[in-house]
């Protein structure tokens, strides 16, 4: 192919590509979601799940014979205290009217 023809084809391709990209960027769909900042409450629910997971793992490890009763009690009570704190705060935040 003639080099000049190739150059013209490439120039047309580049122009079309740029135009499509700009249309895509600046004409977004109408249902643009604004997104929201994560709340303390959402974080607490995540934390609750993590603490519950930790409790499940601990129970399984205890059942498998890895820890003595005393070690299990100490770890378990620590995790339960943390769960209690998290649940308390969730209750407080949920009791406040929006």
């Amino acid at each position: 192919m003639n080099p000049q023809t190739t150059t013209v084809i490439v120039q047309i391709f580049c122009s079309v590509f740029a135009a499509v990209a700009l249309i895509y960027i600046f004409i977004p769909s109408k249902d643009t979601d604004t997104g929201v900042d994560k709340t303390r409450l959402a974080y607490l629910y995540e934390r609750k799940d993590v603490v519950y997971d930790n409790l499940r793992d601990l129970n399984f490890e205890f059942k498998s014979g890895k820890f003595t009763q005393a070690d299990y009690d100490a770890m378990s009570s620590g995790l339960e205290a943390e769960a209690a704190r998290v649940l308390d705060e969730i209750d407080q935040l949920e009791s406040v009217p929006a």
Partner: peptide, 22 residues
């Protein structure tokens, strides 16, 4: 889930605290 026979110390919100399977 695996049963654990050990007693769990009582706390104020204990009814909320136990994850499924504990």
């Amino acid at each position: 889930t695996v049963a654990v026979p050990a007693a769990v110390p009582a706390m104020d919100n204990q009814q909320h605290m136990q994850p499924a399977g504990v």
